[in-house]
Nucleic acid binder design. Sequence first.
DNA 1: TTATATTATTAGGCGTGTCAAATAAATTTC
DNA 2: GAAATTTATTTGACACGCCTAATAATATAA
Lengths: 167, 167
Amino acid sequence: MTVAEELSASLEDYLEAIHHIASEKGASKAKDIALRLKVRSSSVTGALHALAKRGLANYAPYDLITLTPEGEKLALDVIHRHEALRDFFITVLSVDKTEADDAACKMEHSVSPEIIERIVQFVKFVQTCPLGGAEWIEGKGFFCEHKDSEGGCPLYKEEKQDSSKEQ
Amino acid sequence: MTVAEELSASLEDYLEAIHHIASEKGASKAKDIALRLKVRSSSVTGALHALAKRGLANYAPYDLITLTPEGEKLALDVIHRHEALRDFFITVLSVDKTEADDAACKMEHSVSPEIIERIVQFVKFVQTCPLGGAEWIEGKGFFCEHKDSEGGCPLYKEEKQDSSKEQ
DNA sequence: TTATATTATTAGGCGTGTCAAATAAATTTC
DNA sequence: GAAATTTATTTGACACGCCTAATAATATAA
């Protein structure tokens, strides 16, 4: 089995669109995809061939379009990146929703898994410890600087409880 | 005067490379650019034609390559985005330098001016108020939540002093 | 200064991703 | 169920940006 080729930004957009349309109306038609991505339907046909060739979409001419499990997995990954970025822009940077969504849409294709993971952790930290003072602890995540003192980091406490539960 | 066409990620990379090579050795040669961008020199020639056509690079066959003032301005903008992202990854997300630089390199082309500005402000905040508690104040920037209490946000105090100086 | 090595350019090809126009299939309406 | 409409596909074109191979210019060494 060879390593799957990196998807282009364009194909990632198609996966994302197909997933979203499917979750709104069950399955996708080329026209909905075209409308959503602001692209002509001949471009959609082309993209669907490419996705089908990679085993990411179920495509038969004139038929409804769905994602394969593999395609679905990749779509969810793109969406995860999108949402992580958007949440970060809104929660931490106080960017307004529309702008945050647009920015996430553009950046979701170039952000690495490592950065996304850090961002997810950081947003989680900010939402739990609004007083801040984030400190990254390798292998654990962000905690506030006073994790050991009374009234310290709630995240850190959760962590402690969790591990004692696991005992 | 028409609105300048958006530069592609690829051309932005060339601008950035030309600027960096020039600041290290005075001017750029096609070979240095090719090495830096891991591209063949025929690709460099093509890119130089495109940049020259847009008035961003001074290009004459077999001659040294420099940027026009316009090209220099755009190069500095790309570099600003790169550095803002890298600093954020390092300072806030505790990502290691190499990874931070790689990630910045990939994302610098898709990040909007608004997001960059917020990130710059946020990093500045984190560096000044390491205890955190960032709060965005429209038209001002990030300050900590205790800006009015004793021992509160140094950034906010600076701001106050600054405006009294201006009086 | 002539031969050699290096560097740059041109020419042509390939993959991606878009479009418009022509055609074909499916759906809706009468 | 036939006609009209909508939707989808094919075909061919074009821009980008990379590549290889062949050629041309420049720089280096003898």
